[in-house]
Design a protein around this nucleic acid. Structure first.
Lengths: 239, 239
DNA sequence: AAGTGGTCTAGACCACTGT
DNA sequence: CAGTGGTCTAGACCACTTC
């Protein structure tokens, strides 16, 4: 795989090598540096990282378990891509999981967490008012992640939060976020404001509805961005 | 861990050793042979299986990723138990995931699959009519698994089916099934009959409702079986 | 200081691929 | 039948614990 450049970030930390490798490969896939369909072997990676093949194999096994990579017996590892249909499926799964999380949050969120959410929203508003067009997407992205982190923690169901992040990460946080922000700017945070209000009022129906709409529009954006005329088939795939 | 007996099933197949070990440990945990809280090290297992520590480590890493085991840095691996609260969470997650699968199935199930489901139900009825009390639980259990397999395949969303089986397996298929069958015998399959009818009629609301009730009663059974007076706290945990 | 556990390396071995 | 890829072993090394 000529794609993989030797990583300068060979920061010798205390973390096990397989974790470095795992994170490096995962990021590369999510960023799209590592194009879907690319074939690579453990040996190549081992050489690039100057380690033996064992830690690489372990890293790749983890990636395989999470669906980022497919290991084909005597061929090598293939970077997994996502068809639009699979994206639709993931969004459908996210809708039910995140709706469940919100229903838990309504019951369990603490006043402190509500305060934190409010604070993050204020920060986002400040950025919208003061940032240059260059900085804004990045900062707003950070705020969104902070908001979601607090939100999904507040449900107090760790396993559910894990599942949600797992699904979210498959979609790749970076690939889509920049242009999404540019296009929909404030909209993203208006829905978060509405969600916040619903959480304060403990209005479960409204909270779930807001968030589902949020995800619907997020998915519509995906379709628009890389729909290859196949939108019609998606009717049965996104529910 | 004095618990682990040397496995007689050292069936030298073509499968990698780590898979054998993974499956062995996983089954042992699910069966309850491997009591929650047990501490063990890779080395012990390696010795018991007469392999080196590398494949064991890889097997345990996989178990850790799936939440069956926790690896504690300089201590060893601990078999993960489930509190009743966590069981409640898993049932809540299962409800939304399986409901989604059924909504997909309503749209996508093929006539052949409906035929298969019908056939499995007939087989189950036959067992209820003809089996001895000894055989019945096992056979009915097999039918249930067959039914579920066809059902969750029929949604045509592989990732969703994976997630569902993953959640189901955490609960341990064996630990609970025997007594459950004995107690509720035909009831389990009455709900499956009703689900089948709803699928035929493409009645989404009814299908989802039937299945959610099915899971509710399944969870109630868990609580009854090992509720340690903490039922009250569960009110907020199972939704 | 000895012991235990975790990680990695080097290299052997085997299975499959592809001329 | 050489080449590549996947798996495992033996053993070294290091970190942390325990006495």
């Amino acid at each position: 795989m000529q794609i993989l450049l030797a990583p300068e970030n060979q920061i010798q930390e205390t973390k096990p090598a397989r974790e470095h490798i795992y994170e490096y490969l995962r990021k590369a896939i999510l960023n799209g540096d590592f194009v879907a369909g690319t074939l690579f072997s453990d040996g190549e990676v081992a050489k690039a990282f100057k380690v033996s093949r064992t830690p690489v194999r372990e890293a790749v096994q983890k990636l395989e378990a999470e669906g980022f990579v497919i290991r084909i017996p005597q061929k090598g590892n293939i970077v997994q891509g996502l068809s639009l249909i699979e994206v639709a499926h993931i969004y459908s799964i996210r809708k039910v999981l995140e709706a469940l999380a919100i229903r838990y949050s309504i019951r369990k969120i603490t006043p402190e967490e509500l305060e934190q959410l409010k604070h993050i929203l204020q920060k986002a508003d400040w950025h919208i008012g003061h940032d240059t067009m260059d900085e804004l997407p990045l900062n707003l992205g950070k705020c969104a992640i902070e908001f979601n982190t607090v939100l999904f923690e507040s449900c107090r169901v760790p396993k559910l939060a894990d599942l949600i992040w797992q699904q979210r990460e498959i979609l790749g946080p970076f690939r889509i976020f920049q242009p999404l922000i540019n296009e929909q700017l404030g909209g993203r945070f208006k829905t978060r404001h509405r969600l916040y209000e619903a959480l304060v009022k403990k209005d479960e129906k409204e909270a779930v509805k807001v968030w589902e709409e949020h995800l619907n529009s997020s998915f519509r954006f995906w379709v628009k961005k890389r729909g290859e005329g196949e939108q019609k088939d998606l009717f049965y795939e996104f529910i």
